[in-house]
Each structure stands twice: as structure tokens, then as C-alpha cells.
Simulated assay, not measured.
Amino acid sequence: MRDVAALAAAVAVVGASFGALAVAAGVPVWLAMAMSLLVFAGGSQFMVVGVIAAGGTPFAAVTAALLLNLRHLPFGLVVGEVLGRNRAAQLLGAHIMIDESVAFAMAQRDPDRARAAYWACGIALFCAWNPAVLIGAYLGEAMGDPALFGLDAAFPAALFALLLPQLREPGPLRVAVGGAVLALVATPFLPAGVPVLVALLGVALALPLPRLEKAR
């Protein structure tokens, strides 16, 4: 619970930055709140707002967000046993299924502790994220450009912090560096949002290379 509380506090800061950035990008407060309540996926929410703010089309924004959330498919397979067979619990559990709640659950070896960790983390972050988005949205209207306060860097910094422990392994490091290079190279030539999709090709760098048998 101590770890969940610390994470919820950090997520609240990120949620406030999203609210401020969304308003700065021209998104109405009610729409930012609807995204937070109905989608509840910070990465895809930032993706949509970022692509729209950069001049991308709604189609590119939604496509990029959907591709980003494809990771929820294997997440669902992983936490299936945690949610159990109750249909209502499955639906509610699927809504609060984010990277952090899955990670907290998978860190527990005991099934009961995994279930408790999943629900505690998911509910705490949902309750922290949404009020913070609303507060950030109203603060964003008052402060003007949130980039002047560094709020635009909050979400990339949070994602990098989550990614950093994985970069100790050569496979994830190759994927991260390769995807970043591909996105940077594609940015001057492709519409906003598309370079992020191109970066997904970096996953190929983690695939095992075929070994050719020496000719005898």
C-alpha cells in the first residue's frame, strides 16, 4: 500500500500535466475528462492530444493510440486468472488494467496477494488520475502555456522512468534505441503521429537472428 500510494501521487502529477496540456492544445475540459474516465490510459491520451496539437488528423491520433494500447491484449491474458470468472469483475478489472496495475499484480507470487495488489493499484490510480486531470485542466486555462512550467516533460519523464530498469538488458535496449532512431529520422518527412508508429519497427531488433549452419 505504501508503494501504491507513492505511485498514485506521481500519477496525479502526470494527470495534472495531461489536463493542462490538453487545454493548451484546444481540447475542452469536458472532453479531457471524458477521455480520462472512459479511456483511462495515460499513454494513449497523451498520444491523441500530442498528435492533434502537432497538426495531425484525428484518424492518425486515434490509430496511434489504438496501436499503443495493443499491449493490453497480452496484459489481459496475463491477468485473466487474477480477475477470476465473475463477469462484472472482469469488465471493471479490464477498465483499470494499465501497466502499473499489471506490474504490481505480477510481482506477487501468491494469487490472493496478486489479486489484492491489482485492485488496490488500479483503483488508487483511477481515483488519483481523474481529479488531477480536472485540476490540471483548470490550472492550464489560468497559466496559459504549460510548457513554461515544464509540465510537458512530466509524461515522457514518467515513461522513461518506467522503461529505464528494462534497458539493462541488451534486447530491450536495442528496441528502445532503434525505435527512437527510426522516429527521429521519420519526423521531418511524415505527418505528426506517424513517426511513433514507425518506431514500432524497432521491435524487430529484439527478434533472434537465424543461425546459418556452416557448410560441411
Rank of each mutant, 00 (worst) to 15 (best):
V4D: 03
A5Y: 10
A6Q: 07
V13G: 12
A20G: 02
V23M: 02
V27E: 02
V29Y: 02
S36K: 08
G42N: 13
G42D: 08
S44W: 02
F46K: 05
V49Y: 05
G50A: 02
G50N: 12
V51R: 09
F59V: 13
L66C: 10
L67A: 01
R71N: 12
H72Q: 13
P74S: 00
N86R: 14
R87T: 07
A88T: 15
A89W: 11
G93C: 03
A94S: 01
A94Y: 03
I96T: 10
S101E: 05
A103T: 09
A103I: 12
F104N: 07
F104Q: 10
A107I: 06
Q108S: 08
D110W: 11
R113I: 01
A117I: 14
L125Q: 10
A128E: 04
L134I: 10
I135G: 11
A137I: 03
A137K: 00
G140P: 03
G140F: 12
E141F: 03
M143T: 06
G144S: 07
P146Y: 03
L148M: 14
G150F: 07
A153E: 03
P156L: 06
A158C: 14
A161K: 01
L164Q: 08
L164Y: 09
P165W: 04
Q166D: 13
E169L: 11
P172F: 09
L173Y: 02
G179C: 12
V181M: 10
V181Q: 08
A183M: 10
L184A: 14
T187S: 04
V194T: 11
V196L: 14
L197K: 05
A199L: 12
G202R: 08
V203R: 01
L207I: 06
L207T: 03
E213V: 09
K214G: 11
